[in-house]
Design a protein around this nucleic acid. Sequence first.
DNA 1: AAGTGGTCTAGACCACATG
DNA 2: ATGTGGTCTAGACCACTTG
Lengths: 241, 241
Amino acid sequence: MTEPTDMPRSLHQRILQEVQEKIISGAWPPGYRIPFETDMARDYGCSRMTVNKALTQLTRAGLLVRNRKSGTFVKAPQSLSAAMEISDIRHEVERAGKAYSYHLLNDTSGNVDVETLEPLVPRSFQHVRQLTCLHLADGQPFCLEQRIINIEAVPDVAKVDFTTEAPGHWLLQQVPWNAAEHQIFACAANRETADMLHIETGAACLVIERTTRNQDADVTWARLTYPGDRHRLFASFSPSE
Amino acid sequence: MTEPTDMPRSLHQRILQEVQEKIISGAWPPGYRIPFETDMARDYGCSRMTVNKALTQLTRAGLLVRNRKSGTFVKAPQSLSAAMEISDIRHEVERAGKAYSYHLLNDTSGNVDVETLEPLVPRSFQHVRQLTCLHLADGQPFCLEQRIINIEAVPDVAKVDFTTEAPGHWLLQQVPWNAAEHQIFACAANRETADMLHIETGAACLVIERTTRNQDADVTWARLTYPGDRHRLFASFSPSE
DNA sequence: AAGTGGTCTAGACCACATG
DNA sequence: ATGTGGTCTAGACCACTTG
């Protein structure tokens, strides 16, 4: 149960890790007010500065929000990094000042046939919901989303109506996640993709494939296909902060 | 001279900022041993813990390396984040277990003709060195690099021989930088690009355009073109650490 | 052996939001 | 007004590396 992920040697590291585990496990959900520094210091039998060191670090990492007087709260996993904002296509479109709309093209549930799966979809998937949807900006096709959701990891997903809400949007708000892996590449649009995006067959497309993981399991896989000449991905880096 | 970038309210923030400025300005170059905690505490007239808080933070940010007994050193800006490793194509190729080689295709110096410049090249460029080079993996074209270096920002670059060393590699080790901005998109290879990469005209390519900045000026602009079906960009994200 | 950073304490005062 | 986090102190002991 309490797995020895690895034993931190210092007390503030142990506190940090235990708080972090409560957050990513969902025991302390977004918006939850965690115990006060003084209380945690008492519980751990240490000084308040030691607790403060752990919580300050988690705040910088974006897991907590702290307010004087009102306390320390678990932050919604919304805004992570600029590069991660590709998570929510609605934001992407609206930030560009365009009108966002969305169409669900296909929606099936069932067991995975491992043979026909894309090579990069996690092999752990068995019972899944598969969706195809189109995101539009000012009425023009903006992004084709092919998504596979692991129903075992997210049982609630079986009942959700995705005709008006995009699955990516719903998942981002519902499911705590640990890690995301992206692969970005270019490819020529095949006939089917080209039709859906209203582009020529063979036109260059930017493709992002993403696997999102829980601490327990692979949660979802998504392929986002953008018409290559209409879309650019932005990312900024700086050595610190 | 001492610009009020913005006045930090707390002492450890002020210390952090002043150390950071010394590093990114180059006053404390990579490998430099910075003053000991005890000395800085004396100089700032504060306790050692306050200095420690600033330096610990800079260490986590990757600007410093700390060793017991031997002291605290400015870290080489080499490894930043997984997403940033696209900076050094040689690493990229060698990490894939392939043999790296490099060809300089074109090399000119002179004044910029603003009219003919790509739209995204910084407008501040005047006297520049322009290079075109090809990176190969196991003898196969891997990436086409078009680069413009601002000679005003990096005077030394005028004399460097880039027939054996790639400009990106040299710049990464020589020039301290503040921020990098990437744009990633897909496009169809034009005739010229296709010839250099040994692919069909019109084939989908992954293109990364990057502007790298100093605190003083735009340093360099680069366009990296990868054959789309042969290359994938990897990026990992996690909420913390 | 000596000197560095790593950690921790048991207080303290302050700023800020509202409990 | 009260209680929270933000910051800071003046010590202390320990771990690690080599100066």
